Simulated assay, not measured.
Amino acid sequence: GSQTINLPALLFLYSLLFCSLILCQGYKYYFIKEPKTWDEAQRYCREGYKDLATVPNMTYMKTLYTDSTENQGNAWIGLYSISGKENRRWHWSLPGLPEELSETDSGTRKCAMTEFNKEGKWKADDCNTRKSFFCYENFILIKENKKWDEALTYCQRHHHDLVSITNSEEEELVKEKVKNATTPYVWLGLHFSCVFQLWLWVSDRVVCYENWANEDHAGRCGMSVAMETGGEHKWFKKNDSEMFNFICSLR
């Protein structure tokens, strides 16, 4: 049978460890009603979204509630356990994240599911049980060809903004998205400011992290940056009037 995981303390301590990759990103959760085993759900989410839902703290738990439009209790999330001789360690599905705390337990492999109660607890069950599940996404590729300013308007109207890349972790996530583009380049949220005569992200951040195709960063009015779809996914200066796919951030 299933068992209750006492998670508030786990969530609190985990949020202290949680890497900047997630704290800097907004999550959008998607409820998939079709019942699947945990492994099948993970594979489904990784193919169509980013991964099974990662929920690093109680704030994100509230987002999961907010994104819910129906009773979605007992749905898989991206938390699973590996049992040892004396304890059970919990891990997130997304590779590279810090390990969860240990809980004294024994038995077969377990996976976590939502319970949706006021205490904010989750439950554990056999991973081979079929349940609905949550996927999540933080960037989305729009396979429509638009000029840079049209892409910006689309992202701001339908999602959050054209994507800003401020560190190598964000860069890697965007690279994974652009691989599926239908144009040779994909618009990013980096444009040349005529007022300040420098490159600025649409989030008004200056360029700290960069991945230019060459050392010539000189820009002019009417230019923005696109990432190449193939090769090393370097950044190229392009005229705003060119038409490419684009990446929106979800926040």
Rank of each mutant, 00 (worst) to 15 (best):
N214S: 11
D51N: 12
F236H: 05
Y136N: 03
L162H: 00
A53W: 07
S15P: 02
S193M: 10
Q156N: 06
L173Q: 09
Q42Y: 11
L141H: 07
G231T: 04
E215I: 04
F12Q: 07
F134C: 09
A53P: 00
N6K: 10
C111D: 06
A181G: 05
S164N: 12
M58F: 14
T229V: 13
L79W: 10
G219H: 00
I22N: 05
A181W: 04
E119G: 09
P184S: 14
E99Y: 14
T66F: 15
Y60K: 03
G230A: 12
P95Y: 15
K177P: 04
L190D: 02
W187M: 04
S83A: 10
I140C: 10
S93P: 05
Y80V: 00
G231V: 06
M243V: 01
S68C: 15
H160T: 01
L97E: 06
K238R: 10
Y80E: 02
K33F: 14
T114M: 15
L52V: 05
S2W: 10
G78I: 11
K234Y: 09
E34F: 08
F192I: 00
P184Q: 07
I5N: 08
A151Q: 07
D125P: 00
T4W: 15
F18K: 05
E144W: 04
K234D: 06
L188I: 08
Y60T: 01
S164M: 12
W187K: 02
F134E: 02
W90C: 04
I165N: 03
R88T: 04
T166S: 13
P98R: 14
V163D: 02
C248D: 04
G189S: 08
L94Y: 13
N245S: 11
F133Q: 03
Y27F: 15
E172L: 15
L188W: 06
A124V: 02
T129S: 13
Y14G: 02
I82A: 11
C127T: 05
E47L: 13
N239Q: 08
A181N: 04
I77Q: 09
G73R: 02
E242L: 13
L64Q: 01
G73N: 05
F31N: 00
K177V: 10
Y27A: 14
R220L: 13
L188N: 00
S168T: 09
G230P: 00
E242I: 06
N245I: 09
G26P: 01
E150L: 08
N214D: 13
D51R: 03
A213N: 11
S224N: 04
D51L: 13
N128F: 10
A9W: 09
Y136M: 13
E115G: 02
W235H: 02
L64Y: 00
A41I: 14
E144L: 14
K177H: 09
S241H: 06
A75H: 03
L16K: 05
Q25N: 01
C127Y: 11
E100I: 09
F134Y: 15
